[in-house]
Design a protein around this nucleic acid. Structure first.
Length: 539
DNA sequence: TCGAGATCATTGTACTTAGC
DNA sequence: GCTAAGTACAATGATCTCGA
């Protein structure tokens, strides 16, 4: 197993990554590469023979320099190892960016011994071929655009290449076989051998870069089919990038190809891409779409647990695009859901759509979301908002049916507990939980500021008590500042708040601890009515 | 087809608060 | 003090756009 490219993406990062693990079918062997310190071109081999370019091939020093630069990032093959590697290839013109001259003199030379019968495979890996980068070979325009210049020799002559062809994977399609054949012939025309571009035992990067450039140059010149890159990857598990630097992927299984072909016409390209990547991912996991989804895929909203799990695992652990789930849902009308997040679907009833549009502009998104979920829940239950909320219900209303449905939704159907608050905020209702607990918070600015100004050391229980008192005052149309003189200092005993607190405790179920909470918070000395009365009598 | 960025929507969860 | 409702906010997801 060879890891190429960058590490897997971090969570939330785009799924499209050059990273992949590819089972190499070619046993790499770096021993064929000259080690550091061995002679390079222009120098002398240990046996005394000179290292030089092939006759007539021109200077190669610049090429060597570029090759060394190419290999500079290679961790396994040092740049100065390029010399001997280049020795045999003599003139990789693509490395200089110059056109490769047509060499008709070998185009029609006799074909070497190549078995006509299907080749037998002697693969190291018994596994399925790796996903492959493709040069968009499936795009009809691309495929049609490529035409060989003329009828040329299509089978390699070199024994090494013949052996290579003979050992291509069984499952490699004839078209890819053809691309490989054509590539090998192309290399031979350049005076190159496959083993020179893909030396055994080396990390793939440097060698692949050279191979990559050779292939890309061939494709650019129309000498090679654009699908050659994909064929190489499919046949050998090597990643070859197109000149754009992008690695395109395509599934291999016929069922997946058929699936891609059958995608809705209106499906966006990003969604198509996401599905494409998912299918490739499934193949990487030794899975296939038919294994995960029954033939009868079901109606809109259907869910398929195996598929869902595969998608979610792919997103979470294998770098699939987060939008993969949405793409599948959009394409096939499913309702695949994330591991931790129910699928969000907008309500479909016109009354609900209209209702969403009437929500206050300043309603926070979170509450909008809760209301959306609630309306979808209603539709799931074959209910609608107008059935629950009597016409004309306005601020201060407490529609009993709505309250019941909301509470049931929260308790039994996974609606967010904030749904009640969201509805109350949006419509001014006062629906409450079944426990009759209702969130209290003062609304007067002076009260809000007062709450903020409470001493830091004041405990949450006392804060809550004061909070309730302020809400109680607001309900009665009063405010703290109306009851408490501005100059009330520590140990003060303002009569108005004392009475208000007493009344609240006796008649409005304010906590009896409210008094002490006020005294603790503001340093007052207000007392209970009975004590105050007794004190007044004594005084 | 990919990669990245922007923006908005949605969710999970820790914390706060109220009622018992 | 306990428990559950309510709240706030960061993280994540969905979608679109644009350039390569």
């Amino acid at each position: 197993m060879v890891v190429t490219g960058d590490p897997p993406p971090a969570r939330g990062q785009p799924a499209i990554q050059p990273y992949r693990e590819v089972p190499l079918r070619i046993k790499l062997n770096c021993k064929s590469i000259r080690r550091t310190g061995s002679p390079s071109l222009g120098q002398t081999r240990p046996d005394g023979t000179a290292l030089r370019a092939a006759p007539g091939e021109g200077p190669v020093g610049e090429e060597i320099g570029q090759l060394r630069a190419l290999a500079a990032d290679d961790l396994t093959c040092r740049p100065d190892e390029i010399g001997v590697w280049l020795e045999a290839s003599a003139r990789p013109a693509y490395l200089l960016g110059t056109p490769i001259p047509d060499r008709p003199e070998i185009a029609d030379e006799p074909v070497g011994h190549v078995p006509a019968s299907p080749v037998r495979l002697n693969r190291e890996s018994s596994g399925r071929a790796a996903p492959y980068p493709s040069a968009t070979p499936r795009t009809p325009s691309t495929t049609i655009a490529w035409k060989p210049r003329r009828r040329e020799r299509t089978t390699p002559a070199s024994p090494e290449h013949i052996n290579l062809v003979n050992n291509l994977p069984d499952e490699l399609s004839s078209s890819r076989r053809s691309n490989i054949n054509r590539l090998l012939v192309y290399l031979e025309k350049q005076g190159l051998l496959w083993s020179q571009l893909v030396p055994a035992g080396c990390g793939p990067d440097a060698r692949l870069q050279v191979l990559e450039q050779a292939v890309n140059e061939g494709v650019r010149q129309n000498a090679l089919h654009p699908g050659t890159r994909a064929a190489i990857s499919r046949a050998f598990g090597l990643v070859i990038r197109g000149e754009s630097g992008q690695v395109l992927l395509a599934p291999a299984l016929q069922a997946h190809l058929d699936l891609l072909m059958a995608l809705p016409e209106g499906l966006s390209q990003p969604h198509r891409s996401a599905i494409n990547r998912l299918l490739v991912h499934l193949e990487e996991q030794e899975l296939s779409w038919p294994q995960l989804v029954p033939t009868d895929i079901g109606g809109p909203g259907s869910r398929h647990p195996a598929l869902e799990q595969a998608i979610n695992d792919g997103i979470r652990h294998h770098g699939l695009h987060p939008g993969t789930r949405a793409a599948i849902n959009r394409a096939f009308g499913l309702s695949a859901r994330g591991r931790s997040r129910p699928l969000a679907l907008p309500p479909t009833l016109q009354a609900h759509i209209d209702l969403m549009e009437t929500l206050p502009e300043d309603l926070i998104q979170q509450y909008r979301s809760y209301i959306t979920r609630f309306l979808v829940h209603l539709e799931d239950e074959r209910l609608s908002w107008p059935q629950l909320v009597p016409a004309g219900s306005g601020p201060g209303a407490r529609p009993p049916v709505l309250e019941q449905v909301v509470n049931e939704g929260i308790q039994h159907h996974g609606l967010h507990p904030g749904t009640k608050v969201a509805i109350n905020r949006a419509f001014g209702f006062i629906i409450q939980a079944t426990s009759n607990k209702v969130r209290l918070a003062p609304t007067l600015h002076s009260h809000i500021e007062l709450m903020k100004a409470l001493p830091e050391g004041l405990g949450p229980q006392r804060r809550s008590d004061i909070n309730q008192l302020l809400v109680h005052l607001e309900k009665q149309g009063r405010s703290w500042s109306q009851l408490v003189p501005a100059d009330s200092g520590p140990s003060a005993r303002p009569p108005a708040p004392e009475r208000a607190v007493d009344e609240g405790i006796r008649h409005h179920r304010l906590p009896s601890a409210t008094r002490s909470a006020i005294n603790r918070a503001f340093g007052f000395a207000i007392r209970a009515e009975s004590r105050a009365a007794r004190s007044a009598v004594r005084d």
